[in-house]
Design a protein around this nucleic acid. Sequence first.
RNA 1: GGCGUGUUCGUCUAGCGGCCCAGGACGCCGCCCUCUCAAGGCGGAGAUCACGGGUUCGAAUCCCGUACACGCUACCA
Length: 510
Amino acid sequence: MSGLSHSTVRTRFAPSPTGYVHVGGLRTALYNYLYAKKHSGKFLLRIEDTDQTRLVAGATEGIIRVLEWAGIVPDESPKHGGEFGPYIQSQRLELYKKYCDELLAKGCAYYAFETPEELEEMRKLQMKQGLQPKYNRKWLPESMGGSMPESKIKEALASGAPRVVRMKIPDGLTIHVNDVIRGGVEFESSTLDDQVLLKADGFPTYHLAVVVDDHLMRISHVIRGEEWLSSTPKHVVLYDFFGWEKPVFAHVPLLLNPDRTKLSKRQGDVAVEDYVAKGYSKEALVNFVALLGWNPGSGSEQEIFTMAELEEQFSLDHVGKAGAVFNIEKLQWIEKQHLRRLNGAELAARIKPILMEELKTKQTVFSIDAITSDGYLSAIGELLRERVDVIKDYVSFGGYFFFEPEQYEEESVKKRWTEQTNPLLLEFCERLRALPEFSAATIEQALNEFAHSKGLKAAALVHPIRLATTGISIGASLYHTLEILGKDAVLRRIERAVQRIAPESVGERR
RNA sequence: GGCGUGUUCGUCUAGCGGCCCAGGACGCCGCCCUCUCAAGGCGGAGAUCACGGGUUCGAAUCCCGUACACGCUACCA
């Protein structure tokens, strides 16, 4: 009520702990976080676990882990604490009870005693009659304009029969919802149902809990998915019942499958964890998801953003209205862009844990200390930066920096090997062995001179050497690759390849 | 069915009455560079602004209708 509550921006992400974190949820959390940061406010996490039947063990921890991974760290949450807690709805039951009683006392809500089965039957009947399914107000007391005598209600209450509390939607009202993204939206109260506020198990429904908590936690801006727009008028009615100031509402568009249906599991990955597993970085995922529905606005053509830049530039004015298709190809491009902005040391730090994991199950002839050193990883990081899609590619596509090649791309062997290749390679090995300094420049010079002396083009050596030392035909500059690998490994691998690629396996092409 | 929201290149979008017979990015195609693959540079194809009516000297931009899509319609969130 006090103007003070709205002088500070306070936003929240309020998921149900029902499993993984949906990428759409990540975006909602991000927008809330960014809005708070932009306005020097607070962002908080509240767990909405009012449906006891859908709880998933460990989900809350998972949500917090994912948010923190992404750099969306709440100022207040079940884990981080805060002065408006508890931040788990199941720990706030007395609060909902208290406010529900207030509504009951004010004549804004009433008890109802139907069983779920009875309600189901009622709805079926209404549908059959072509009516919209809506509570028939059977238990609306006479004192509130209904037809149920107070005596019967008292009786039912005394009997201990299971009961719920429903809100009484005022009749003949046009309810205005102000949404910063969509403008004013109007609803006729006649189209609204007398929503259950308190369930038979004593837990509140979303509608009661969200209004009570957003008010108590001084939430200034409710930024949530578009699927909530239709129930916002109920929330508006509740705010008015209580006489509370309403927050600013912003309903963000949905994320879609390629066929424009709501993003779902059936058509691809929807969990943030899935993308983490695929190797996408938090920088790229945050950047990408921010751009699904938001843009920096006219005049700016920026596509790559750091979290700090998003915090500075984010604005609800530039959040679009239409749903956005989750397009993996753009994510891939954004991932590359972020990778290219990392320096060698940063890349090394990211490659190392993945390599260590790999080393638990794979043998290497290299010294572990050498291949996990910052210098080695940093050099590889910078060399392969332009051709890697995600960090873990360094250990897969760039695996030859850590493990001996076991196979040689068949197609390429056919294409690049001739009868003279093996003897040539062996002869060239001697040149390499004699090099006082094993660097890209000296290797290149030696190779050029050798090729020239044989009347060959450099390519006649380059490709076989690449195959022999890496096993594959694609990669960065060969000379730099050899330099990093080091003289010992290079000679060892060429000699091994010569043994393993027998002349008989050489292509027909003369 | 009812209520609500939305609709600009395949995709993400700029655009808030004249600068737009619509700009950028991803993807796609071609050329250049080149030891391969990328990256990079250059160029190209790709949107009658869902459709139909208005309003206006003038509309992608404002209004109305239609179509389609999506959301909601639970003692789920």
